[in-house]
């Protein structure tokens, strides 16, 4: 029962992340929504799998996957936002501030 609730919460977070991925205006905001919601949603699903299996081999595998996914997704998001800036993707129309422009020169 606990595992079903955790998985339902995870799918709900993933749903919000996908809505953000489709609705938000530029690359950086889409990356914000997608990284945060996708990572925590999938971590929640894996925690549900851990609760369902208990501490046998399958549960331990889900437990290992959580920190791997966490650090992998944050580092990949960091590399993507830096790569997109160097590629020349402009900040959106609503942006108010850009300190990074002077530092890259």
């Amino acid at each position: 029962m606990v595992s079903t609730i955790l998985i339902a919460i995870g799918v709900l977070f993933n749903l919000i992340g996908c809505i953000g991925l489709i609705r938000l205006p530029d690359v950086y905001n889409r990356l914000q929504s997608a990284t945060k919601c996708g990572t925590l949603g999938t971590c929640s699903i894996l925690a549900g799998a851990l609760f369902h299996f208990g501490f046998v081999d399958a549960g331990i595998k889900a437990l290992i996957a959580i920190p791997l996914l966490f650090f992998g997704a944050t580092a990949a998001a960091h590399a993507l936002v830096r790569g997109a800036y160097h590629f020349g993707v402009k900040l959106g129309d609503k942006s108010v501030k850009d300190d990074y422009k002077d530092a890259v020169k």
Binding site: L21, R30, G38, I45, L46, L80, G83
Partner: peptide, 13 residues
């Protein structure tokens, strides 16, 4: 590329 990254995370789910 952002979409491909998140696609991988969702497939793990």
């Amino acid at each position: 590329m952002v979409a491909i990254d998140i696609f991988g995370v969702l497939v793990v789910g």
